[in-house]
């Protein structure tokens, strides 16, 4: 029976939600074709959470445990996963297109001289068994329908937030495999981790987004967000210059919003940005440039200076939202 492997990314025992998205999608494809879905979970003391992955679509889960696997680290992960793939020879290998998922898949694809599709937004397996995915390019405006033509496993990373995880199945069968790892041979070692807390804007119902037009000062954006009970997002350059955390920028390399309302101020609307606001129900934007591309992606496009408009808007909303 053909076997679809899904990399289950975890950190200190917490499973990355986007891995569940991939798992559910894989199961839907597998059910249509009569294939098997195998989750592969690498971590430290994680066997307890393996069986539950079945509810999201895994028929079985292969677990590899080792202290060095507690958080993602490129070398040992590629080594363990590479050995498993080499021994078991799965037909397909899917990972969520997180930084770590891409890091791992990029390495494995060359190890097995096989095809890898990047951050697909649609995925299927054709009659002839070839993996077919929709790969966005040029910031997301153009999509290539890509097919794997040789190599095994056929591989893809899957864009985040495109598919919904569903708890629709039963417990998975769990197999624990011995890790063959020699930590003294590692050429890259983690020496420090700094986390500042993480907000998942893809789940926010309302978001106020500030761009470079704010000049890097998000005071007004935060105030407006507070009044309408929204979360704060930014365009990528604001994260790049360190004004905002890297988890809250919107776009092809950041978060895709699914909000009911996004108020977007001082953002030009570059292709790499607007691909992140496709699924927003209502888009309001403020830009002083009447020709800004964001106009085309807005339901309401206000032409003017955000520093003049927002204080007045806040004042009016204070009198009653």
């Amino acid at each position: 029976m053909r076997d679809i492997w899904v990399f289950i990314e975890q950190d200190s025992g917490v499973v990355e939600e986007s891995s569940l998205e991939v798992l559910t999608k894989a199961r839907e494809i597998a059910d249509a074709r009569g294939y098997l879905v195998t989750g592969v979970l690498l971590g430290r003391g994680v066997r307890g959470i393996a069986g539950g992955l079945g509810r999201y679509g895994a028929h079985r889960v292969i677990v590899v445990e080792h202290p060095i696997l507690e958080s993602y680290l490129g070398e040992p992960y590629a080594s363990v996963m590479g050995d498993l793939i080499g021994e078991r020879n799965p037909d397909y290998f899917l990972a969520s297109a997180t930084r770590n998922g891409r890091d791992l898949a990029g390495r494995l694809a060359v190890r097995f001289r096989t095809g890898l599709q990047a951050h697909v937004v649609n995925l299927d397996i054709a009659e002839d068994g070839s993996l077919v995915g929709h790969v966005p390019g040029f910031g997301g405006n153009i999509v290539a329908v890509v097919r794997n033509v040789r190599g095994r496993p056929q591989m893809a990373t899957v864009a985040l937030g495109v598919f919904r995880p569903r708890e629709a199945w039963g417990e998975a069968e769990v197999e624990v495999v011995e890790a063959k790892l020699d930590p003294s041979k590692l050429r890259a070692r983690r020496v420090e981790v700094v986390r500042r807390g993480y907000v998942d804007l893809s789940k926010s119902r309302r978001v106020v987004v500030g761009g470079m037009g704010t000049g890097g000062d998000l005071t007004l954006v935060r105030e407006l967000a507070k009044i309408i009970q929204a979360d704060v997002g930014v365009s990528r350059p604001l994260s790049d210059i360190g004004v905002a955390p890297k988890d809250i920028y919107i776009g092809s390399t950041g978060v895709s919003l699914n909000a009911d309302l996004a108020v977007i101020v001082g953002v030009s609307g570059a292709p790499h940005f607007v691909s992140g606001i496709r699924n927003v129900r209502t888009v309001i934007s403020i830009n002083k440039d009447p020709e800004a591309p964001i106009a085309e992606y807005s339901d309401y496009f206000a032409v003017g200076d955000l520093f003049e408009i927002i204080p007045k808007l806040i004042e009016k909303l204070r009198r009653g939202v």
Binding site: G115, V149, S275, P290, Y297, D299, F301, G304
Partner: peptide
């Protein structure tokens, strides 16, 4: 190459009101 491109498609911008406020 191990992959091939069957076809390209353009993703049109979503339908928006595009109402201008001046």
């Amino acid at each position: 190459s191990a992959t091939t491109v069957d076809t390209l498609m353009e993703l049109k911008p979503p339908e928006r009101l595009r109402s201008r406020i001046t």
